[in-house]
Amino acid sequence: MTKTSSGNFFEDFRIGQTIRHATPRTVTTGDVAIYNGLFGARFAVQSSDAFAKAIGYPRSPIDDLLVFHIVFGKTVPDISLNAVANLGYANCRFLAPVYPGDTLNAVSEVIGLKENSSRKTGIVFVRSVGYRSDGARVLEYVRWVMVRKRDENAPVSGEHVPRLPTALEPKVLGDACPPIDTSAYDNGLAGSAHRFADYSAGEKIDHSDGITVEEAEHMIATRLYQNTARIHFNQFIEGQGRFGRRLIYGGHVISLARALSFNGLANAFHVAAINGGRHVAPLFAGNTVFAWSEILAKAELPQRSDLGALRVRTIATRDKPCGDFPLKTGDADDPAVILDLDYWVLIPR
């Protein structure tokens, strides 16, 4: 009996199956430094203890997407070690702040299965929850991932495609953000004078800058999250695969797009929820990522007057600046589009 694991294949999953993931992870300021070195995020609340304390945090919190990636990474060895691609996200909420020194772990439930017509792969839907060591839930989300079958002829234990909400209601947002003293929120230090009232539904913002991705960067980032998916690391195998090279983790694109969005959304310091997202096309080392955003909606939060919520759709592209807001070519996705992300951010009023 082997002591090593080859991971789960599609036929190994069962609807209702609960998986408690290894390994608990204590988040440190070292993790933050590496993350900032890789993506260049500049949001003031996550950059400065002094700024964060002035507005009501006990100290600077861990970047929301770093929390997401660490929890996501816990799930990979059990859910997506044999993945072809991570396809999308929905119903993601940030539920409590995370600070350096907090330890995170994750549990997932299989909520849907659908075998593909080729019978070589299938789509697994999971709801994952990230916890602090004190038992508090810090994050929950649904994702769906295409996973290889070990045996094309293996039967599937029931199929079900879950119905998921298209967007989260504003009334459920904000649990991961303490009350904010907006009078102490320094626009100059934050990098923008634009607050909640300055944005309008339908407004489009070209984030202008581009970031070229290097091979070592995306592998360091993925290892930072203890994400073990082979498709990101093993050129010996992937060189013989569909693309002939390593595929960049989709979360890397999300973090790049979020970092780029600072230029235009600098005061949108907290990602409160992800309504949905698609990895439209792959990204590879050597490509340059650009991004633009549309404000889909604005919402006042019924439970608080310090912050408002912006529903943002951010589009990331490869090797195509976004001055003309690329999205579709006819009925199809523009060939340059690699990410389509719909999410809520909180911004001072």
Rank of each mutant, 00 (worst) to 15 (best):
P61V: 06
N105F: 12
F72H: 10
K53R: 13
E115P: 11
V110A: 09
L113K: 13
N36A: 15
A90L: 04
G56W: 02
Y57D: 01
A54V: 03
V76W: 06
N105P: 11
P77Q: 04
G56Q: 03
V76C: 07
N105S: 13
V110E: 06
A85W: 05
L113A: 10
H69W: 14
L95H: 08
V84C: 08
L65G: 03
L66M: 11
A50R: 09
D64M: 13
G56E: 03
A50Q: 14
L66F: 04
R59K: 13
L113Q: 12
S108W: 07
A96Q: 09
N105A: 13
H69K: 14
P100R: 05
S108N: 05
L87H: 00
G112Y: 03
V76I: 15
P77C: 01
R42V: 03
V45L: 06
L66R: 04
A85S: 06
L104I: 01
F94M: 13
L38H: 00
K53N: 05
D64R: 13
C92T: 15
R42C: 05
L104A: 03
F68P: 12
L87D: 00
Y35P: 08
I62C: 04
G40V: 04
L38F: 00
N91K: 12
S60W: 01
T103V: 04
H69D: 15
R93S: 15
G112N: 02
F51R: 00
R59F: 06
F39P: 04
V84L: 14
R59M: 13
D78V: 12
G40D: 08
A96Y: 05
P97F: 10
Y89V: 13
K114D: 07
Y99I: 12
K114W: 12
K53M: 07
S60G: 13
I79S: 07
E115M: 12
F68W: 03
V107W: 14
I62R: 03
L66N: 09
P58H: 00
D78Y: 14
L38I: 08
I111R: 03
P97S: 09
A85H: 04
V45Q: 02
A85N: 02
F43P: 11
L38T: 02
P97H: 08
A41R: 14
Y35E: 01
G40Q: 06
R59L: 09
P77W: 02
